[in-house]
Nucleic acid binder design. Structure first.
Length: 436
DNA sequence: ACGCATGATTTCCG
DNA sequence: CGGAAATCATGCGT
């Protein structure tokens, strides 16, 4: 529009003589030049002013008439000129502000909580976050609280998404509407694309401030849910007998090195979860249990003596049963990472057995006499008994005494020198839990 | 109500 | 980051 030749040098009254059509018309009316023009312009302005009061059809017709009016280009130019003077002041005022920190915070949180993330992944992300908060438990979390939490979260998530979508849709609708309107109006008055853009920006800002409110309330809801969940999480439920039995069995049969590997933990968790009738039990819980057990055992070995003997006997019986059956399908978990896949066939156990032999030899040759050897031996012996190579686990009960702990001042000391025999760490994968 | 057992959390360390 | 140790908080038998 700025390219339009400046035919008008001043507004209203004077310099209109330049317009060809205008002067032509003026002479025809016969009135005073100035009067006629004024009246004409006043007429048009009046029409414009009242255009909003008319019905749609009427307005449409009027609009058309106005657009075709011979004075229209002139008026357009006047508007152009006025605009040119005001637009500069507007320009200065409109600079885009930096992205709102508050909004970013909310966005980040929603993303972290899995509310605004990808569809299904969101739930698991949130669960993972919750599990992480609970002390590093990952994997199968099918506890009642988790499912409850997830259900609530997905509810929030759903509401959030539908609302967001609604807002977005409304925003788009409104924006296109305004844009159409402005485009339409740009025929009667000068509107630059930049201005339209600016208008759209304003609209978007308005809508995003509404969105922010939505996000804020969603965040609040999540926080409330989370705190409630965390509080609930702190509640302690004792494991049932079977679960404790399984854990104790593992503990006492690996007394010399009661550090289950990740695989072993997982297996234990699975096993306990089955016997415990689905709910609870994951790696974190198993870790907790072993942590507590180790500490408390070490603190007061005497108190646990009876228990130790009992489980020793039990595992011994288990071992004989297993060996006579020729299968170790449900013996207390495999302590080695080699069998992590769960397949633990004979050839595999044969390999293990060989390595066990060599390891023992090495240890004794290297004068690594002492508890570490002892500890390895008894762990390995357990492995052997599991693999059906031996049925000698019966003699193990004596090894389950505190000797194996006390003699070397704790598991820490016992396991540390085992790294000395690390060249034989191949079979030492039995001890992968310590290296992990 | 009390005390012990025990699961969970926190803090510290290598 | 995994484990030890300390601590918290609850479950449960008395």
């Amino acid at each position: 529009m700025d390219e339009q030749p400046r035919l008008m040098h001043s507004h209203a009254g004077v310099g209109m003589a330049g317009h060809p059509g205008l002067s032509q018309h003026m002479e025809g009316t016969g009135g005073t030049e100035g009067d006629g023009r004024k009246q004409d312009i006043g007429d048009i302005l009046q029409q414009i002013m009242t255009i909003t009061d008319q019905s749609l059809d009427e307005a449409q017709a009027r609009k058309h008439a106005l657009n075709c009016h011979r004075m229209k280009p002139a008026l357009f130019n006047v508007l152009c000129e006025i605009k040119e003077k005001t637009v500069l002041s507007i320009r200065g005022a409109q600079e885009e502000e930096p992205p709102d920190a508050q909004l970013m915070r909310l966005d980040n949180m929603l993303l972290a909580e899995g509310v605004s993330g990808p569809e299904k992944g969101g739930g698991s992300a949130a669960a993972a976050a919750a599990a992480a908060a609970s002390g590093g438990g990952a994997g199968a979390d099918n506890s009642a609280e988790h499912s409850d939490y997830r259900a609530k979260l997905s509810q929030i998530r759903q509401i959030y998404h539908t609302e967001l979508e609604k807002y977005e849709q409304a925003c788009n609708e409104f924006t296109t509407h305004v844009m159409n309107l402005l485009r339409e109006q740009s025929r009667t008055r000068p509107i630059s694309p930049k201005e339209i853009e600016r208008m759209v920006g304003i609209i978007h800002r308005k809508f995003s401030s509404i969105q922010m409110q939505l996000k804020q309330s969603t965040c609040e809801a999540v926080m409330i849910l989370r705190s409630r969940f965390l509080d609930a999480r702190r509640k302690r439920r004792n494991f049932n007998k079977q679960a404790t039995e399984i854990l104790n069995e593992y503990f006492y049969s690996h007394l010399s090195n009661p550090y289950p590997s990740e695989e072993a933990k997982e297996e234990l968790a699975k096993k306990c979860s089955i016997t415990v009738s689905q709910v609870q039990m994951h790696l974190g819980i198993v870790s907790n249990w072993f942590g507590n057990k180790r500490i408390r055992y070490k603190k007061n070995i005497g108190k646990f003596q009876e228990e130790a003997n009992m489980y020793a006997a039990k595992t011994a019986v288990n071992a004989t049963n297993v060996s006579s059956h020729g299968s170790q399908a449900n013996s207390p978990s495999t302590p080695n990472s080699a069998g992590s896949a769960g397949s633990f066939n004979m050839s595999n156990s044969g390999d293990l057995f060989m390595s066990v032999q060599s390891l023992n030899g090495d240890s004794y040759q290297g004068a690594q006499v002492g508890a570490n050897v002892q500890s390895q031996v008894d762990t390995l012996r357990h492995v052997i008994s599991q693999t059906g190579g031996y049925s000698e686990g019966l003699t193990a009960s004596q090894m389950y005494s505190q000797q194996s702990i006390n003699a070397n001042g704790g598991w820490q000391d016992a396991t540390t020198p085992s790294s000395v025999t690390s060249p034989t760490e191949g079979p030492g994968s039995v001890h992968s839990d310590t290296s992990n």
